[in-house]
């Protein structure tokens, strides 16, 4: 099965659109597989994603179940990662916390990447006053430190996961717009875009069908590299009490509470910190690998 797919996808003379597209994807995958760091990153990301999805099956305890008799217990056979200040099982909270933290990050990216892409491509292709207006708006958002702006927005709304998503999304799109615009500027005067215009394609069609696909790889790379910073912003909001509210197990919020016992009961802080560190690092590795594979200048 796999070998048939392999020969089919790697065929040098594909006979259908589908085969050609899969051939390209498969070659990118093969190239990515040769990069060990990227593969480590991918494995960690998939691992944590799987843990979060399967949390209800994997978690040994109810993440909200308190057991004050066993508060701040060291890691043991019953509680692999120990318990927190209310006697809740840390492992279970990390597993469920993954759903909150990763869920936030993914919803942010789903909102942010397309917005940035459209704004950047439109600004870059049309130029003139459209470009000026869109880019000045981008600059305004870009000129505030992300965390401060997010904090202000959350404070103005009400602390919680939804507000955190909105706040981070509003502060996270400008870099994508910048990248998409830069990429658009390099291709907009190229002959192949001229040829599309000579086919009678409308500006809209040129932007959405011909230019945007070329900007997607850079944006994907930027997204994966940005993941860690989004995770950290989300965690920071949680840490400052502006993100997910207790008892919801969010990694940043868990870390915030654990700081009180950091010196004596180190395991309470260690687990969420490690989770944040590992996932951020993994996304960075993956992003670096993707940058090498998706580099538009390569083929």
């Amino acid at each position: 099965m796999l070998t048939t797919f392999r020969t089919w996808a790697l065929d040098d003379t594909p006979t259908s659109r589908r085969q050609a597209a899969w051939g390209r994807r498969y070659r990118i995958w093969l190239a990515l597989r040769r990069n060990p760091l990227a593969m480590i990153g991918l494995v960690i990301v998939v691992f944590f994603g799987g843990l979060a999805i399967l949390a209800p099956l994997l978690a040994p305890w109810d993440p909200a179940a308190q057991d004050l008799a066993h508060r701040l217990a060291r890691p043991s056979a019953a509680h692999w990662l120990g318990t927190d200040e209310l006697g809740r099982d840390i492992l279970s909270r990390i597993l469920y916390g993954g759903r909150v933290t990763l869920g936030m990050v993914i919803s942010i990216v789903i909102v942010v990447a397309p917005v940035g892409l459209v704004v950047g491509c439109v600004a870059g292709y049309f130029g003139g006053w459209i470009d000026t207006v869109l880019m000045r708006v981008t600059d305004v958002f870009l000129s505030f430190p992300r965390l401060i702006l997010a904090l202000a927005l959350v404070a103005a709304l009400h602390p919680g996961v939804e507000s955190a998503i909105v706040a981070i999304a509003l502060t996270a799109w400008p870099p994508y717009a910048r990248i998409a615009r830069a990429e658009t500027l390099t291709v907009r005067s190229s002959d192949f875009i001229a040829a599309c215009r000579l086919a009678g394609a409308s500006p809209r069609r040129v932007v959405f069908r011909h230019i945007m696909p070329l900007c997607v790889p850079s944006v994907i790379v930027r997204v994966t590299l940005d993941m860690s910073s989004i995770i950290i912003t989300a965690a920071s909001l949680g840490f400052l009490g502006m993100g997910a509210q207790p008892p919801s197990p969010e990694w940043g919020a868990m870390l915030a509470i654990a700081k009180r016992f950091m010196l004596q009961e180190w395991w309470v802080a260690l687990s969420p910190a490690m989770a944040i560190l590992l996932v951020s690092l993994a996304f960075n590795f993956l992003g670096d690998g993707l940058r090498d594979v998706l580099d538009p200048k390569q083929n």
Binding site: A20, F192, A195, H210
Partner: peptide, 10 residues
């Protein structure tokens, strides 16, 4: 430069 690098000939 005159052919879109991410599109098939088709």
């Amino acid at each position: 430069g005159s052919l879109h690098p991410r599109q098939t000939i088709d």
